[in-house]
Amino acid sequence: MSKGVAITGMGIISAIGNNVPENFHSLVSSKAGISKISHIDTIHANEIMVGEIKTTNSEFEAQLQLEENSYSRSPLLGIIAANEAIAKAGITNINDYKTGLISSTTVGGMDKSEQYFYEFFNSKNHWQHINGLHAGDSTKKIAEAIGLQESFVTTISTACSSAANAIMLGARMIKSGRLDRVVVGGTDALSKFTINGFKTLMILSDTYNTPFDENRKGLNLGEAAAFLVLESENIVASENREVLAYVKGYGNSNDAFHQTASSENGDGAVLAMEKALKVAGLKPEDIDYVNAHGTATPNNDLSEGRAMLRIFGEGKVPDFSSTKAYTGHTLAAAGGVEAVYSVLALQNNRIYPNLNLKKHMKEFDLRPQTKVIEKEIKHVLSNSFGFGGNCSTLIISKEA
């Protein structure tokens, strides 16, 4: 059986909390963070709902002692979450071991570049926000903020599976001996570009999203950042680290079905879950809880439901729920957000409710949990599926 990679720290900021304890309290209190848009000047403000973090950029910059209007929102969120993860791990010198940062984003610096785009040809007053559009800029800023020097720093952008792939790559880098420690996760902020893009796809809900509900209308976009600290056995032993959980299995695939839609029978999702179980050395019946991708779109929930039935069998699908009704769909950050939630499920032996469910889907007899459940949990399977057929699965476990 494959040995897992130790998770020694984690940090998160989302619409339901500014740190790990606040997020957990919201999860077990069924406190969603979905609301009308308040921070973005958009014509769709009264048409859709989002998972918005209410703290402003100026407030974040003051908190981080940064110059006013110097950073876009994605790196600000990322720095907050990465700092919490590093502090939780008890790291006082980020460069004392071979350390990497693998961050993910889809939005990058879009919230600022779109603001100053029309000044592009006439002024260079906000040139840093034009240059800060690309995905790697947020990773660079996070690396600088945590003091990382002369190490492995890279960015992954595979749509909504990005952070899950960052965690997978980090685990593989440690297993191969390339790195001793990796900070892994993702960050994405809301922007007009994202809102307009998803509005064009006609998959945004005008009310609270309802994963796995027969009458689901679409997703709520959200913003968040979440990072884990992964460390080698050597560091855990020599530094006497507290291990929160282990990245036990991982797998990714591409179903090559459609630019935005998942395959009707969940082919890519099945392959990703099969790979993760194989890496973990586990059988489907070993999984105690599935944190489903569960975007509340007609296509995703049907595809993922069929995929779970193919993996686990009729009447054998373990307890499952989607947590996107709490946070909204946080795009590249989603796999990191839900990895943190998976660790919390293991630590507290809790399964979170699938909020807003009123009517079960007619295509199959799958029933997500709608109440907080206390039970012994040893292995959590977390799905993250993205546009372009990018399908990724993580298995997070209590023991190596």
Rank of each mutant, 00 (worst) to 15 (best):
S30I: 06
A269H: 01
S205Q: 06
Q259L: 10
H39V: 02
D180S: 15
I12E: 04
A62Q: 14
S262I: 01
A224E: 14
T105Y: 04
T200G: 15
I311N: 03
S104G: 14
G328Q: 11
A189Y: 03
I102G: 02
V337P: 03
I156D: 06
T393M: 02
T210K: 15
F387V: 11
N69S: 05
Q369T: 05
R306K: 15
A32G: 12
L221R: 08
F320E: 04
E374P: 00
N356T: 00
L201A: 12
N165W: 07
S30L: 14
S104Q: 09
F387D: 05
A276L: 10
L346Y: 04
I13A: 08
S26W: 10
T158S: 13
N383D: 09
S342C: 01
N383H: 04
N83R: 15
N23G: 09
V372W: 10
R178V: 13
V153W: 06
A333S: 09
A400Q: 10
T105V: 02
D206Q: 14
I12N: 00
Q149R: 13
N196L: 09
L357P: 00
N220C: 12
D206P: 06
I37P: 04
A261R: 02
H360K: 10
E314F: 11
A166R: 07
G9H: 00
D180V: 04
N196Y: 13
G268H: 03
F364P: 02
I16W: 11
I37M: 13
T8L: 05
G185A: 09
A166V: 09
S397V: 02
M308L: 14
G100C: 05
T210H: 13
G147D: 15
S103L: 10
K316Q: 13
K378N: 15
S253H: 06
R350W: 05
T210A: 14
N209Y: 02
A189W: 06
L381C: 02
M202S: 15
K36N: 05
Y246N: 01
R367G: 01
S138T: 14
N95D: 12
G315Y: 07
I203F: 06
N122D: 15
K371N: 06
N196R: 03
A189N: 08
N254G: 07
D111G: 07
